[in-house]
Simulated scan of single mutants.
Amino acid sequence: MADDPLTGSADGSGPALPLVRLSLGGRCPRCGSPTLFAGMTRFAARCSHCGLDFSSFNVGDGPAAFLTLILGTVIVAAAITLELTVHPPLWVHAVVWLPVTLAAVIGSLRIAKAALIAVEYRQAAHEGRIAPRGP
């Protein structure tokens, strides 16, 4: 049986890849191959190495909303600090903060989405269903 990168080998005795390593590398939660993403932040349909179907996972918009608030706060604070200490022209702010914001959003979104998929896989999470009640 194949090793599971989150829990170790199939019998539980082997080493496990840490969640951080899986999410930073955009790795498949089952086999550990770097096949999770087909684009910058778009998931591949399935792992080309082990065949795990990534479309069955649902990370939703949680990472995007959470990261928008955090990164927005950090970047606005840094821009205000730069303005109050150096007083650069407006074009300098555009040249500095637009690429920094874009890189930070894309990089952190990839990491957050990969981490959520790995946790969903580890916990065998699936969409909630209400069981029918008996008579």
Rank of each mutant, 00 (worst) to 15 (best):
V86H: 10
V119H: 01
E120K: 04
I70D: 07
R46Q: 13
A104W: 15
T68K: 02
L67W: 12
C28L: 09
G51P: 07
T101Y: 15
V96M: 09
G8D: 05
G60Q: 07
E83I: 05
Q123C: 06
K113Y: 14
D61A: 00
P135T: 01
A45P: 11
T35V: 09
D11H: 06
R122L: 14
A44L: 08
V105C: 13
L52P: 01
A118F: 04
P63K: 05
G32R: 02
G107P: 13
T7R: 15
I75H: 03
D3A: 02
S108L: 15
Q123H: 10
M1Y: 14
R46P: 06
P132Q: 01
R122Q: 13
P135C: 00
A112R: 09
I111L: 13
P5Q: 03
G60I: 12
G62M: 06
A115L: 14
S48P: 11
A125S: 11
N58A: 10
L102Q: 06
P88Y: 11
A112T: 10
V86P: 07
I130A: 04
A65L: 15
R133A: 05
W97I: 02
A45H: 09
D3C: 00
A45C: 01
P132N: 00
L19V: 14
C47M: 02
S48G: 12
A124E: 14
P89C: 07
L109S: 10
N58I: 05
P88C: 04
A10D: 14
R110E: 12
G25W: 04
G134E: 07
V20Y: 15
A65Q: 11
P89E: 09
L71K: 07
L84M: 05
G25F: 05
C31D: 04
D61W: 13
S48I: 03
R21N: 08
A16S: 12
G14F: 15
L71V: 13
V86L: 14
R27K: 13
L17I: 13
R21H: 10
I70Y: 11
P132R: 00
P135Y: 00
A78F: 08
D11F: 03
C47R: 02
A115S: 08
P29A: 00
T101E: 11
G60E: 12
T41Q: 02
L24S: 11
L109D: 10
V92G: 05
V20R: 15
F37A: 01
T68F: 15
T81M: 12
C47D: 03
P18V: 01
R129V: 13
G51I: 10
A44W: 11
M1I: 12
G12C: 04
S48Q: 09
A65R: 12
G8L: 05
R133M: 05
I80Q: 10
T73M: 04
L116I: 03
L82R: 04
C50E: 07
M1L: 14
P132K: 01
G32W: 02
G107M: 08
A131G: 00
L36C: 05
N58C: 01
R46I: 08
F54A: 01
A104V: 09
A16F: 08
G72N: 09
R42T: 14
L6E: 04
L98T: 12
L52Q: 00
F54L: 04
H93T: 04
P63L: 03
S55M: 08
K113R: 15
V95T: 09
D11R: 03
D61Q: 01
C31T: 02
G134C: 00
W97E: 03
F57D: 07
P5W: 07
L6Q: 08
